[in-house]
Amino acid sequence: MRLLVIGGCGLVGSMVVPVLARSHEVAVLDLKEPRTAVSGVDYHTGGLHDVELVASLASDVDSLVFMAMGPLAGWGSQENARQHFDIAVGGLYLALTGAAKAGVRHAVYTSSMSVYPYEELTGMVTFPDESVPPSATDFYGLAKRLGEEVCRTATERWDMDTVCLRLCFPAADDEWPRGDTEMKRAISTSARDVAAAIEAGLHRRGHGFDAYAISGDASGRTMSIEKARRELGWTPRDAT
Rank of each mutant, 00 (worst) to 15 (best):
L3V: 03
I6P: 06
C9T: 13
L20C: 02
L20G: 02
E25P: 10
D30R: 15
A37D: 09
V38W: 01
V41G: 07
H44S: 06
H44I: 13
T45V: 15
L48C: 03
L48F: 10
H49Y: 00
H49N: 11
E52G: 00
D60F: 07
V61D: 11
V65I: 14
A73M: 11
G74C: 02
G74P: 00
E79I: 08
Q83A: 13
F85W: 14
D86M: 06
A88N: 15
L92F: 15
G98R: 04
K101A: 15
V104E: 07
S112A: 13
S114H: 07
E119D: 15
E120V: 06
T126R: 14
D129I: 09
E130H: 14
S131L: 04
V132A: 13
P134C: 07
D138V: 04
F139Q: 10
G141L: 02
L142D: 02
V150K: 09
R152W: 12
W158M: 02
D161P: 08
D161S: 09
T162E: 00
C164W: 05
P170F: 10
A172S: 11
A172W: 05
D174Q: 07
G179D: 00
R185H: 00
I187N: 05
I187V: 15
S188F: 02
S188R: 01
D193L: 12
A195Q: 12
A197W: 05
I198D: 02
E199M: 10
E199H: 02
E199K: 01
A200K: 13
L202S: 12
F209S: 13
A211Y: 01
S215I: 03
S215M: 06
G216W: 01
D217H: 06
G220A: 05
E226C: 03
E226Q: 14
L232W: 08
W234G: 01
P236H: 12
P236Y: 13
P236E: 14
T240S: 06
